[in-house]
Design a protein around this nucleic acid. Sequence first.
DNA 1: GCTTAAACCGTTCGTCCCGTACTATACGAC
DNA 2: GTCGTATAGTACGGGACGAACGGTTTAAGC
Lengths: 177, 177
Amino acid sequence: MKSKAKAIKLTGTSYAVLAVLDEFGEMTSYDLKGAMEMSIQNFWPVPHTTAYEEPARLTAGGYLAARQEEGGRRRRIYSMTEKGREALAAWAADTAVIPPQLRDEAILKIFAGADPGPLGDERRAWHEAKRDELSAMLREVRAADGFAASERTLTVGVNYHQKMLEMLDDLAQAPAD
Amino acid sequence: MKSKAKAIKLTGTSYAVLAVLDEFGEMTSYDLKGAMEMSIQNFWPVPHTTAYEEPARLTAGGYLAARQEEGGRRRRIYSMTEKGREALAAWAADTAVIPPQLRDEAILKIFAGADPGPLGDERRAWHEAKRDELSAMLREVRAADGFAASERTLTVGVNYHQKMLEMLDDLAQAPAD
DNA sequence: GCTTAAACCGTTCGTCCCGTACTATACGAC
DNA sequence: GTCGTATAGTACGGGACGAACGGTTTAAGC
């Protein structure tokens, strides 16, 4: 009966991994890496090593189970345990959240005296590319059917980048407010 | 001649500290902590221990100089060195930036199946409070004169929160896009 | 002047997180 | 069957983080 589950602290990143596994089903670290890039990377960025380290931690804590792949690379395939599902549900049901954090080197440079012009241009192109990328994924997901979670968050993503583009336009025109 | 400056790697957080020191002049760690909260915290969040740890690192690297406060707590007062100013200017002049990162636990919860309603309401209140807070700071800074850097970034901040509020309204109305 | 509380100020510590660099395996082309 | 490329995975050093705690100064109350 899941005797030696080591006590570990679950971080936001832990829940991110659990949520992806819950949405898409069991998978290897490599697949998890790809799945995270296509789903949560936009609002919860993690380096690719997380897809290898975090499932190992979660397995040690009893939140995931691992089984060995037959043949080939004999990779570990991770799947949710009951404990994992419960923890994820309890966390999602709690409406208390840490405030959103934005990390923006460009604004930091502007604070330090950099010319806003070129940085703004580059940023605009970046938001456009992101918006289009997410938009394309959204169309795919809608066609596929059965990925309600991805659809909800992709919609937010598209709207976010759109609003950021509007903001850049506003700032470029009005000197201040 | 700044002989034994240990080679250290400068991170985004390093430049954040340098930029604040450059904008407001020499100060103690405690004052630095306050200054960061009022200036860059909104787009480059750091825990308060950074205001103690990072200047120490930067001093070891020769980017800052420290002198002892007379009497009282005899705290260390940090100030920029020539090397620090040069490094900051070189970094600010480079238009290559790492893309902005957003970390949003609420969207993660929505991805995991949480009800968007309450989370959206709470978020709206948060953005309103932030917008008003930054707006008040912006008025102060304008009245004071001589804080052009803070003014530029505060303006961005106010606009950002305003746009986020618009986005929440859009999402609440239109089921999708 | 003494006591006390509150505000102010600062550090330690364990763990998590992160990016870089590197390695290894599978597979198709030729 | 060896070469190139995409796929898959690991090692590791140090920065980042936040909880917890500990000291110091000031001012109020007596």
